[in-house]
Design a protein around this nucleic acid. Structure first.
Lengths: 338, 338
DNA sequence: TTGAAAGCGTTACCAG
DNA sequence: CTGGTAACGCTTTCAA
């Protein structure tokens, strides 16, 4: 059974297609007689007619869709962002087209392209390999498509920027103040350069206290990568007294690694990380982490899209999301050296 | 700057729109001369032309989109399913339209309606308030739209069914065998009836061992709800020696509640739950849980959609996902009564 | 080998 | 107040 179209409704109601359109869209400001309206509505009802969004989009040039590209579906941090986007979008009557880059350059490029071809009304891009897709982005910008970038402004679009350098400073200072002078960094990023800001601060600050060669363990982005990397760091002799982990997800792995090695957290080793995913309050021990409300990031980004949609001539919008240091139970005084 | 259309390309290349279409879609099986092809391709290049997916969809009746409705974006379990769906869909060239019902009847109904109006090629529905939307679903079915239901077959569609009763039996038996005779149930569901299968088994089995009034704490679906509920249960005198929790997410809260009350897990109280989200290996202690590979569920569902898309006359497809009991460290022998 | 034209389901303009 | 009609951008037959 094919789905009913406007024509079917018009025929059944004995009116023209235009009239159906008027009624369905509620533009009956004295345009359609009450009687006709009734007839049409009944026809709609009996046929179970629903306007075809595709056709509407083609006609109007609007898809009522916001495209969201995230790097990876395994990291709760991105879902939380997605959640924020979905919330705001849905409220405004937009749907969410979600694409995961699966931590892969080609998929990322392809994702942006797809979003563009599909004429989504706005794009929110969390790019991992940003530089590879600037061409595509520029095209979008030239078409005045609302785009929100979730990172530095390499190009002239709106963006939400999460200041990580500042947070890194705060958490490292926190560790210093607890007496930690041998800190290791679990640096699990999809692509080198992604966490550069944090790495740079880490390098600079550890060097400042005379630790010229603070160990940085590069690894992938899964929990298990975090586990492995932390384990490697903690098996050193002497092991670092504190671990800084690139994100909470990987910190879960690190926590596990410490436990498996018989190390007490924070007695033997302190662990701190980034993101403040909601779970971080529920780990054992609770994670000390530098984070921001990720859902809020998503909401902000979505709101920017909406703003620009409603008012295309808006000057560049930017938001800096502040991160806070949440001191919880996974960090404590450095153990005394024997 | 408006985006270029087929007409622009045709004009620039000095050919007709049809020819452009042929070239772009690679249907040049001796249809277009090499020379023309070159010209068109160059024009496409200089203009940065991309076919409009909307228009293509309208013409072809295919949107290359799979709609996924999940109950809630806060629960990792659904994300893992979404991940599986996205994987398979993307591989087959389909995109994912994601809608969250946000644990709300109206949003759920509205979600199904949206998916239908948008003419997604297939729908995967994880319904919480199933019965409210059967009308809409039936409409879809009559249009021969591939639909996969993630729960019982209330209606004649394909479905993936996760057998929870069996798993519940297994985990409770596991607890019995450890000597637990006072088990509490943290029953956090969005709508009563959702976890009925598990609850029924729980009731039946506890009754069988003479515990006619095993405590069931109803609560919401957030970690914090799990925390509260577990806490309530554990503050009873005497407290249950084991807690069964409706899912891993809430179990994180339960773990935390135990810790906050100074109860050792599994020394003082055992905790077991459902889902086996990937994090459950990284909690402290590791969670004993009854679960299935959630990503696999998603993949299965997506595959069903694809099957039916390729072969619409397929008989009803069903898959039963088996759940396994993963015995880890959060369950242990019941403490001796003093 | 290429071009003209119909049609997908809407909406919106302009007559009637 | 209502109905015809022209787009929207594309694919696909049918002719040339």
């Amino acid at each position: 059974m094919k789905r009913p179209t406007q024509v079917d409704v018009a025929r059944l109601a004995g009116v023209s297609r235009a009239t159906v359109s008027y009624v369905v869209n509620g533009l009956e400001e004295n345009l359609v007689s009450e009687e006709t309206r009734e007839k049409v509505l009944k026809a709609v009802e009996t046929l179970g007619y629903q306007p075809d969004a595709m056709a509407q989009s083609l006609r109007s040039g609007q898809t009522n869709t916001i495209g969201l590209l995230i790097p990876d579906m395994d990291n709760p941090h991105y879902w939380q962002i997605a959640k924020g986007v979905e919330e705001v979008a849905q409220q405004a009557g937009f749907d969410l087209l979600l694409i995961s880059a699966a931590l892969n350059v080609d998929r990322e490029t392809h994702g942006v392209e797809v979003l563009s071809r599909r004429r989504v009304d706005g794009l929110i891009l969390i790019l991992t390999f940003g530089d590879k897709v600037t061409d595509e982005i520029n095209k979008l910008v030239r078409q005045r498509k609302p785009v929100v970038f979730m990172s530095g402004p390499t190009v002239d679009v709106d963006y939400v920027f999460v200041h990580q350098g500042e947070g890194t400073r705060k958490v490292i200072e926190h560790l210093f103040s607890l007496g930690h002078h041998r800190i290791g960094f679990v640096y699990g990023v999809a692509t080198p350069g992604l966490g550069q800001d944090r790495l740079a601060v880490f390098r600079a600050m550890t060097r400042q206290i005379g630790d010229d060669d603070a160990p940085v363990e590069h690894c992938g982005t899964t929990i298990s990568d975090g586990y492995q990397a932390a384990r490697k760091l903690l098996e050193r002799q002497p092991h670092p007294t504190a671990l800084l982990v690139i994100n909470d997800l990987l910190a879960m792995g690190a926590l596990r690694a410490a436990a498996d090695l018989g190390l007490n957290v924070p007695g033997d080793v302190s662990i701190a990380s980034f993101d403040d995913i909601s779970l971080s309050v529920y780990t054992q021990p609770r994670l000390t982490t530098v984070g921001m409300d990720a859902t809020h990031i998503g909401r902000t980004a979505a709101q920017m899209i909406l703003n620009r949609l409603y008012n295309p001539r808006l000057p560049q919008q930017t938001a800096e999301i502040l991160s806070h240091l949440f001191v919880r139970d996974s960090t404590g005084p450095a153990p005394h050296e024997e």
